[in-house]
């Protein structure tokens, strides 16, 4: 992990990518590029740190933690390391309100466990969910959900997240655990429950994998606002002509 430069709170977004060398299977860096650019265009500072295998994690140093998807083998390696080196730091970060965003395999690791037959891979338990690899096909395809982010002052169209999912695991929410949203098209957590992802305060998990922020820049802005503690409307609007077409194209692909 790089040294943390001093940052004036509110003026610089400090992002920590977990295992960017391993948990990046679906081009997860697209999310980091979008966060960086949208901060830069607004004159907001952006610092990117990483923490990979064997490296400790200081939960007090960053505003947003990102963990993406990986191959089974790499996900196992990361799960062990997460428990050993990063669980406490990540819990402390979540407790003080930092954003923790887990995507695809990263979502699974934020839960309690991932059962693969006899084997059970432990997670950090920030989300009250369990994932099971069951018989049946992988859940693959375009997906769109209506996110329920209660505090946001967005219009109805801007509540839709569109993307692509590709997961063998089925994720089950515990009683009382809120999903990220309602499935409009696609499979979501398990292909049956009609819900997708999970969210507890600023910890969010989703199966909309890889570069979901380029297709949903409203969500990127929501994350930036929350991470910097800005109120609604405090983030300067950007010229999003291309981004709006991209969002529409992803929705159309999902049939929404």
């Amino acid at each position: 992990m790089a040294d943390s430069a001093p940052a004036t709170p509110g003026s610089t977004l400090r992002v920590c990518a977990l295992y960017p060398d391993l948990m990046n299977i679906y081009a997860d860096r697209g999310n980091l590029i979008v966060l960086e650019r949208r901060c830069a265009w607004r004159g907001i500072g952006f610092q990117l740190f990483s923490s990979s295998l064997g490296e400790p994690l200081d939960g007090g140093e960053h505003d947003l933690f990102y963990i993406g998807g990986g191959q089974d083998r790499d996900q196992r390696l990361c799960a062990e390391d997460l428990i050993e080196n990063k669980r406490e730091g990540l819990r402390a970060a979540a407790a003080r309100g930092a954003i923790v965003l887990g995507v695809c395999g990263g979502y699974q690791l934020l839960g309690h466990s991932y059962a693969l037959g006899e084997e059970e891979i432990p997670g950090v338990g920030l989300l009250d969910v369990r994932t099971v690899r069951e018989d049946g096909p992988r859940l693959i395809g375009n997906v769109a959900i209506e996110a329920s982010l209660d505090e946001m002052d967005a219009n109805a169209e801007e509540r839709v997240l569109a993307g692509f999912e590709n997961h063998g695991g089925r994720t089950y929410l515990a009683e009382g655990q809120a999903p990220l949203g309602r499935v409009l098209k696609g499979y979501g957590n398990d292909g049956r429950s009609g819900v997708e992802g999970a969210r507890t305060a600023n910890t969010i998990g989703t199966y909309l994998h890889g570069p979901l922020l380029p297709k949903n820049v409203w969500f990127a802005d929501w994350l930036i606002s929350r991470a910097l503690g800005l109120g609604p409307g405090e983030l300067a609007p950007l010229e999003d002509g291309i981004e709006r077409q991209t969002h529409r194209s992803a929705r159309q692909a999902a049939g929404v």
Binding site: G30, V34, P214, K215, E239, I242, Q245, S249, A253
Partner: peptide
């Protein structure tokens, strides 16, 4: 192409000026 806008967004975030991108 069927995902023309996705490619346009990729080029914009790669650093191309949007005025040079046509969908």
């Amino acid at each position: 192409g069927t995902r023309a806008a996705d490619l346009a967004a990729r080029l914009k975030y790669a650093g191309l000026d949007p005025s040079r991108i046509h969908i």
